[in-house]
Design a binder for these strands. Structure first.
Length: 361
DNA sequence: AAAAGGATCAACCGCCACTAC
DNA sequence: AGTAGTGGCGGTTGATCCTTT
């Protein structure tokens, strides 16, 4: 026999919560704490199911929740974390304790996804320019982007920084995809202990890598999310990189290649995009931008080989010799290190491990 | 001023892993 | 060991608010 039913389905109330209901729930949680949600409707007399009570508390009533607009720093964090973790909103929310997974998910769907789409459309204009419909679309995209980021347009360094934020992460895999750092990254939101994770990681490697199959059976472990799949992908990429130094340098090339996304290039692209002149769009600058876009907007689901091949085919490997000598890690990684240093996210020993890891690279 | 369309976000739904029985 | 309820998650919906025409 299983547990008794949590609540009676008949007579359950749905829809928006009233102020009175909020007060009742809040006072109950303050007295008894949040935990046994099954008993909440019974003890409070609320005509809500336990699930609804839990959601209301975790997504709205919790005192530590920060409401209002997301800051630029939060925005960057979400973009970077999303590129590494995917749509694991709870995991992402664990790095933003004052925001709920629901808020982050909503913000992503309503703001950030749109911004990234706009970047993509601006940097990668359609080939069929000239028709009236495409002119309307690209113009709208441009206007939206211009309205949203007017401050960036007038500040090239900020623009470059922002572009680097939204475009660089997927290509910088070498550090973030290391087993140790992925497990470190996932620490705090996985129920699995580090030791278990380490063991699982080893097992995953053994299971996946010999035959190259990344269909890790998530059901075999106690990992609640798809962290097994995430790990599997990243471990596989890491192994590929380890086994082929040339690929690592090409990954580095992919990263450095993004530095060509200067303000002038973006402006030029916009102008050409809005002018709807198909001949100029296929000119050198736009062509370069398109090629760079091939490398920079590639998600983690795209095989590295494709990305690397696109770089080779573009014939821009000379850009690897970028004298800026940028480090081979992305914003997220920089952020992790920064925050480790201030103790905001990770412990000091983790920072030391990260630094040791960088030394090894 | 009003209608239409878009944006926002709280809340719901369905699924899954965990776990009490 | 098997069953079924619970908690938690990501995806989706729909009511409301805002902006544009």
């Amino acid at each position: 026999m299983g547990r008794p039913p949590c609540c009676d389905i008949v007579g359950i109330k749905k829809g928006p919560w009233t102020h009175e209901e909020d007060l009742i729930l809040t006072s109950y949680i303050k007295q008894h704490g949040s935990g046994n949600w099954r008993s909440v409707p019974t003890y409070t007399g609320l005509l809500r199911c336990s699930k609804s009570c839990r959601l209301r508390w975790t997504n709205y009533l919790r005192p530590e929740i920060k409401r209002g607009k997301f800051t630029e720093a939060e925005e960057k964090m979400i973009i970077s974390l999303q590129s590494v973790l995917g749509n694991k909103w709870a995991a992402i929310a664990s790095y933003l304790p004052q925001r709920t997974d629901n808020d982050i998910k909503n913000y992503w769907n309503t703001h950030l996804k749109k911004k990234l789409d706009m970047f993509h459309s601006v940097l990668h204009p359609p080939h069929h320019l000239g028709s009236s419909s495409s002119s309307s679309d690209s113009s709208t995209s441009f206007q939206f982007f211009k309205r949203e980021h007017n401050h960036l347009i007038h500040d090239s360094s900020t623009l470059n920084k922002f572009i680097s934020t939204v475009t660089s992460t997927p290509s910088s895999t070498t550090y973030a995809f290391s087993t140790e750092n992925v497990s470190r990254l996932l620490k705090g939101w996985m129920k699995t202990s580090p030791d278990t994770l380490k063991l699982k990681t080893t097992q995953t490697k053994e299971k996946l890598l010999p035959d190259g199959n990344d269909n890790y059976n998530n059901n075999s472990g106690n990992n609640k999310l798809d962290d097994g799949k995430i790990l599997a992908k990243k471990i596989k990429i890491e192994e590929i990189c380890k086994g082929d130094d040339d690929r690592i340098s090409k990954e580095a090339a992919a990263y450095n290649f993004e530095s060509i996304l200067t303000f002038e290039n973006i402006s030029s692209c916009w102008e050409k995009n809005s002018s709807l002149d198909s001949t100029t769009v296929h000119g050198s600058t736009s062509a370069t931008l398109e090629e760079s876009q091939t490398t920079t907007t590639t998600t983690t689901t795209t095989p590295i080989n494709d990305k690397v091949d696109s770089i080779s085919e573009s014939g821009h490997q000379g850009l690897v010799e970028d004298d800026q000598n940028q480090p081979l890690f992305c914003l997220l990684e920089k952020w992790l290190l920064d925050h480790e240093a201030t103790g905001q996210v990770l412990e000091e020993d983790h920072r030391q491990k990260s630094l040791q890891y960088f030394d090894q690279i």
